[in-house]
């Protein structure tokens, strides 16, 4: 408990993330109305009793949609971060450990993907794969993995030169052992920071992709498609964009604090 007090970021971050996960799991119970039920008579209804965040253009309850949207937005973000992280780390580790032409080839491939405008990749994937959650995760991961690959490789290269790793190597430790014992903890901090930022970036990217017709299939609510649908009514019904906007903000805040806390934790351990 003493650690808790010294690491408020971790405490608050964990609390927010736990709350978000709880909302995602139980939100449907909290929201009394069906997020996909239209009621044209209440199109763009202002916030009030019954509809704390008002209604969208089709008269759907924005509160219910934000609650349900948590499930999708968090699910997609976490899946994309996990997929990008695993793929990126593996590729980065292979490049960093193998060196030579393998490293060279992999890093050129990373350069190509990084240099390719992400939005075009998304448009193309949207048209080729079609809409849907799985395709959305694939498209976002296709853009996201490179950062992790670069990060892991960079850390590997710089750590390889450090004395204790050299020593472990000389002592006959196998490369995989070196990676697990020394390199992984060292990479964990920057990775956690990157991953938590990733969650925010992905929630925002999901909104941009909704705009292009890729993303959650209607009528499934996601914060991204809510933000996009509300954009046309920013002048008359700002609550349509504010509700998902705040949800996105809180999510990013929570994950950032969690990331900070984790980084601090990793820092004190090593």
């Amino acid at each position: 408990m003493k650690g808790m007090a010294r690491n408020p970021s971790l405490t608050v971050g964990t609390a927010i993330v736990a709350m978000l996960l709880l909302v995602a799991a139980l939100g449907p119970l909290a929201a009394r109305s069906d997020p996909t039920a239209i009621n044209l008579a209440e199109s763009l209804a202002r916030p009030g009793i019954g509809h704390p965040f008002g209604c969208d253009a089709l008269g759907r309850d924005v509160f219910a949609r934000v609650m349900y949207g948590a499930r999708l937005s968090l699910g997609v973000s976490l899946s994309v971060v996990a997929l990008s992280l695993v793929v990126g780390s593996l590729v980065g580790a292979i490049a960093g450990l193998a060196g030579g032409w393998i490293d060279e080839t992999i890093m050129r491939a990373v350069d190509i993907v990084l240099a390719f405008p992400g939005i075009l990749l998304a448009i193309a994937l949207a048209a080729i794969l079609g809409p849907g959650i799985v395709d959305l995760i694939v498209a976002l991961s296709a853009m996201g993995w490179t950062t992790y690959a670069r990060l892991v490789r960079g850390e590997l290269l710089s750590l390889r030169e450090r004395d204790y790793v050299q020593a472990a190597h000389v002592l006959g430790a196998s490369p995989s052992r070196v990676v697990i014992r020394h390199l992984l903890p060292a990479v964990a901090g920057p990775m956690a920071v990157q991953a938590t930022f990733g969650v925010g970036g992905i929630v925002a990217a999901e909104a941009a992709l909704s705009f292009l017709g890729l993303g959650a299939m209607p009528p499934t609510p996601s914060w991204g498609n809510m933000l996009d649908a509300g954009r046309a009514f920013m002048l008359v019904a700002p609550y349509l964009t504010m509700a998902p906007g705040i949800a996105i903000g809180v999510t990013i805040l929570g994950f950032n604090l969690l990331g900070d806390g984790l980084a601090q934790l990793a820092g004190t351990r090593s």
Binding site: G200, A208, D228, R231, M234, T241, G245, G249, I252
Partner: peptide, 17 residues
Amino acid sequence: ILGISIPHIYLGPLLMI
């Protein structure tokens, strides 16, 4: 955090308003 959480397609019109 606010800066990261606002997509361009939303921030642009907001600044305009």
